[in-house]
Write a protein that binds this DNA or RNA. Structure first.
Lengths: 347, 347
DNA sequence: CTGTTAGCGCCTTCAA
DNA sequence: TTGAAGGCGCTAACAG
């Protein structure tokens, strides 16, 4: 915040109470129920009364409370998007969800419920339980780590870390994508390829490791288990792992990282050790976050079509809301070649 | 969604009802009030009772409803971020807000309430009124277009399009930024510089135009009013405007667009007319959205520190929630030179 | 046509 | 230490 100009102004003003339906009723000289009917366009109200109420509503600036009405109404016309936190991955998804919902009669409520919670685990159940049943008509849950059952509203899971357990799921071909990534490195001539493995408790990470192994085996390259290290899915976790991989004398000439965040971190670690990418080391990631393309050099990666996945989840959810059956949709992965991969120095 | 594999599975399962506080009370053989006290850590409950209740809570998977409890409680520990829609600009801010709130006891609730509403105008008041007073303890409103007053919770406005009207505001130095953009073009040797003006009803657009004019005047370049056209803030609106500017025989050698979205659109229009950027035309934007840096060529632009602005808004709001005074924080703009600007062909 | 009654799920007095 | 009653703002049935 350095360089920011700060200007102190007024003190804390005691905030006026919210205008409630009762205030409107009193001011218009009618009952609360009547105001409710007017607000909801129910018929059976005299035109004169309706007009008068509307006038007061306008004058007082009254809006029905989403919360209160959701406790009585069935449908709220609000879709919930539940995420652990708002990081680039979920924000991209949210972007897709938003544009898909643009043309519909639904509003979006995005909730990051693990921010405060001491216990990170189980955020998805907690959030769903806290919002479901009342506030939202349906939910899209991003990368849940537990199986969701016994839920009160239709739910679609995007990229669930437990696999396609729940009924409705949208995800990407992780195995195929990881295979493509590894094959790309192999085709460039790399033979010693390290793998910065993701969170081992998550299915997506296991699948990516599997794809890595499959590609090596298919190419007849023996798997060196010591080249597979746990890098997690976050930068902090990947630092040491990348260092371990790059610190050894027989370091790999290329690294396939389980996601873009750890790939970027690997590049940073490499640089700090005097290794330049892609000259001394090739790196490929997974996800294709905005940061992958905007950095310098641009990160070669496997693209998950996040926008399209968000859109697909919306269509699926809307269909379910409409009584349709739930499905499982798997999107194809795509290789995006940028600047961080090239043939090894000693081919 | 082409290429996606779809697998139909189970039909629509009737969703079980949510577990309520009453279910827990019944199962534990106590009153609802007792469960409530246990859940909220109130004292005056026998250890044995508390333990038994907690056991049932765990077994049934009960979570207090955020909605219901917010209607009675004062604080919900939830901060609301209100946006017109989830596009890159607000998503970046949300990112900053999220990371700033990471270490606090607050959860985040982001709401896009103008999606369904027929009337786009006044979304900020409507959203605030629908959520405020109950669900959220405070709100951060992104680019509100109206003045907010008579509100029930502390509010911080980010980049308000009406200027620093409300008490608490976080914004960027629009005038200075626009001046920097124009000066950059001038310093490269450009003299005929067009301006794709933003929404003329918004202060930020007026300020950017002002900065543009100031820079030209300071350089002694006469202002050609015909080079200033309305491009709005969205791509669709900018298409025709850019076409008008580029279609004329004495077209400008450079364009300063009011934001990145319209700058990118101008580049697209230029390309469709056979003009290549930056050879035939230099283009500079404003905002520095992720898309500005990830595209090819990279867009030269004026950076608004969106992440930092989100963070600043959070700190401001937390201070206000704590009884502090409201402030106005202005962040500095920064010139980011990438690939879309260079000296004009005929210098 | 309009008002009254009864909650939605929860928390907070206030008695017992 | 616990439970009963009342009410948050709103809407859905039912009376009148």
């Amino acid at each position: 915040m350095q360089g920011a100009a700060v200007t102190a102004t007024t003190g804390h003003r005691t905030s006026p109470r919210r205008v409630t339906i009762r205030d409107v009723a009193n001011a218009a000289g009618v009952s609360v129920a009547t105001v409710s009917k007017v607000m909801n366009g129910r018929d059976g109200i005299a035109a004169a009364t309706s007009e008068r109420v509307l006038g007061v509503v306008d004058e007082l600036g009254y809006e029905t409370s989403l919360i209160a009405s959701s406790m009585r109404k069935r449908r709220t016309q609000v879709i919930g998007v539940l995420v652990a936190e708002f990081e680039p991955f979920s924000l991209q998804l949210l972007n897709g969800v938003s544009s898909a919902l643009q043309q519909t009669a639904y509003d979006i409520l995005a909730y990051a419920g693990s921010v405060s919670a001491g216990e990170h685990a189980g955020w998805e159940r907690r959030s769903l339980s806290r919002l479901g049943g009342t506030l939202i008509d349906g939910a899209i849950i991003v990368t849940p780590t537990v199986t969701l059952d016994e839920i009160s509203v239709p739910v679609v899971a995007i990229d669930p870390h437990t696999g396609p357990t729940g009924p409705a799921v949208v995800d990407t071909d992780n195995v195929g994508g990881a295979r493509m990534a590894t094959e790309h490195l192999i085709s460039l001539g790399h033979r010693r390829i390290g793998h910065l493995r993701g969170r081992t408790d998550l299915l997506s990470a296991q699948q990516r490791e599997q794809g890595y192994r499959e590609a090596l085996m298919a190419a007849g390259i023996p798997i060196d288990e010591s080249l597979i290290v746990d890098g997690g899915y976050r930068a902090a976790r990947a630092t040491a792992a990348a260092g371990e991989l790059l610190g050894r004398p027989d370091r790999p000439s290329a690294i396939f990282a389980a996601n873009d965040v750890t790939a970027l971190e690997a590049i940073r670690v490499a640089a700090s050790r005097g290794l330049s990418v892609p000259i001394d080391l090739s790196v490929i990631g997974f996800d294709d976050l905005p940061a992958a393309g905007s950095g310098r050099p641009g990160l070669t990666t496997i693209r998950q079509p996040l926008l399209e996945m968000g859109t697909a989840a919306v269509h699926l959810l809307l269909a379910m809301l409409d009584g349709g059956a739930s499905e499982r949709i798997q999107m194809p992965a795509e290789l995006i070649v940028r600047d961080t991969t090239q043939p090894p120095l000693f081919f």
